[in-house]
Amino acid sequence: MPYEAIRVDIDAATRVATVTLNRPDKLNSFTRAMHHELSAALDEVETAGARALVLTGAGRGFCAGQDLADLDFTPGAMTDLGDLIDKHFNPLIRRLQALPLPVIAAVNGTAAGAGANLALACDLVLAARSASFIQAFVKIGLVPDSGGTWFLPQRIGMARALGLAITGDKLSAEKAESWGLIWQVVDDADLQSTAARLATQLAQQPTRAIAAIKQAMRASATQTLDQQLDLERDMQRELGASHDYEEGVRAFIEKRAPRFEGR
């Protein structure tokens, strides 16, 4: 389908999909129309059989969160933020977390509000050295959404999570990396090539196993050790009957590179 607020590119050779938020004049902030397009783009990525996804932004910012101009501030008819989140932001975060392929955020500039948490919902976050992350919600009297109150304490601890959320202070990419909030910082000029190279590498891996790793890691936040041990057992049993396990073992024995197919 034709898109206005995003761009979609799927490389048939590498099977890497790149989805670019494309409202650079608005720092790629979200409108409801953009949500609909992004949902359709993720459908396209899955239907095309992509084996890795890069999510990035056009221009000087990654995503500034919700575009306030898309909301109604008329007294008595103001946009219900809970309804907006329930219909658009929460389904997006859940879908990114559940995609059966590795998802890389290439944060090319400011990631603010829901834009910051959109990046954190991806599996791996690469950030340009000049990028920053801002939990800007408190500055307009709101609470972090799009998973922010879950991602932040999970990754950096309660003290730092509360500090970022309560002050709304900007966090540099380098500090985000040192705190363990994101995977890696790279020079601005190298961001897109590094993301493409990593996505290509991951697309060649056993993506069914990667999907299971994602599921297991995230389940651990709410499960006991006994529950997690049982989940690992069940996943290992299922993956042990897969093509990729058989191929991986055969390639190891034959001392050659494996040819994984995600099945």
Score class of each variant (00 low, 15 high):
Ala114Gln: 13
Tyr3Ile: 07
Gln204Pro: 00
Gly248Ser: 05
Arg32Met: 10
Ala199Trp: 13
Ala209Lys: 01
Ala105Val: 03
Ala136Met: 03
Arg237Trp: 08
Ala77Gly: 08
Asn90Ile: 10
Ala195Gln: 08
Pro100Ile: 06
Arg7Gln: 13
Glu261Trp: 00
Gly76Phe: 05
Leu42Gly: 06
Ala48Pro: 02
Asp86Arg: 12
Arg7Gly: 01
Asp226Trp: 04
Arg233Ile: 03
Asp188Glu: 11
Arg263Ala: 14
Gln236Trp: 00
Asp11Pro: 07
Leu142Tyr: 00
Cys122Asp: 13
Ala159Thr: 10
Ser242Asp: 12
Phe252Trp: 13
Gly65Leu: 05
Met1Phe: 12
Leu99Gln: 09
Ile140Phe: 08
Ala189Arg: 09
Pro75Cys: 07
Arg32His: 03
Gln135His: 05
Val45Asn: 02
Ala111Asn: 08
Gln205Thr: 05
Val19Thr: 08
Ile253Ala: 07
Asp72Gln: 05
Cys63Gly: 05
Glu247Trp: 04
Ile93Gly: 02
Ala69Leu: 15
Asp187Asn: 04
Met78Leu: 07
Ala13Met: 10
Ala173Ile: 03
Val54Tyr: 03
Glu46Met: 08
Gly148Phe: 03
Ala165Leu: 06
Ala77Lys: 11
Ala13Asp: 15
Thr56Leu: 05
Gly163Leu: 06
Ile213Asp: 12
Gln154Ser: 15
Asp244Val: 04
Trp179Val: 11
Gly248Glu: 07
Asp187Tyr: 00
Ile140Thr: 13
Leu124Glu: 15
Leu71Asp: 11
Leu120Tyr: 07
Ile10Ala: 02
Asp244Glu: 09
Val249Leu: 12
Asp70Thr: 13
Met34Gly: 04
Glu174His: 05
Asp67Ser: 10
Gly148Leu: 03
Leu38Lys: 02
Asp11Gln: 07
Val125Arg: 00
Ala219Phe: 12
Asp234Gly: 11
Ser193Leu: 09
Ile210Trp: 12
Ala119Gly: 04
Gly163Phe: 06
Ser39Cys: 01
Asp80Ala: 12
Leu118Cys: 06
Arg197Val: 06
Ala119Thr: 03
Arg233Asp: 13
Asp9Val: 14
His243Glu: 14
Lys26Gly: 00
Pro102His: 04
Ile182Ala: 02
Leu21Cys: 01
Gly262Pro: 08
Arg160Asp: 15
Ala112Gln: 11
Pro91Phe: 02
Met34Arg: 01
Gln201Thr: 13
Pro144Val: 12
Gly76Trp: 07
Lys87Asn: 07
Thr31Phe: 00
Glu232Cys: 13
Phe62Tyr: 11
Val107His: 02
Ser172Asn: 04
Ala52Ile: 06
Ser130Cys: 08
Val143Trp: 01
Arg60Asp: 14
Met78Gly: 07
Arg155Cys: 03
Arg32Thr: 14
Arg233Thr: 13
Gln205Met: 09
Gln215Gly: 11
Arg218Thr: 12
Gly141His: 09
Gly59Phe: 01
Gly115Ser: 08
Leu164Tyr: 05
Glu238Cys: 01
Ile134His: 01
Asp169Lys: 05
Leu126Ile: 10
Ser178Gln: 14
Leu162Gln: 12
Gln135Tyr: 09
Asp72Asn: 14
Ser193Thr: 15
Asp9His: 14
Thr74Asp: 11
Ile134Asp: 07
Ala105Ile: 02
Thr47Tyr: 01
Leu118Phe: 07
His36Gln: 15
Arg263Pro: 05
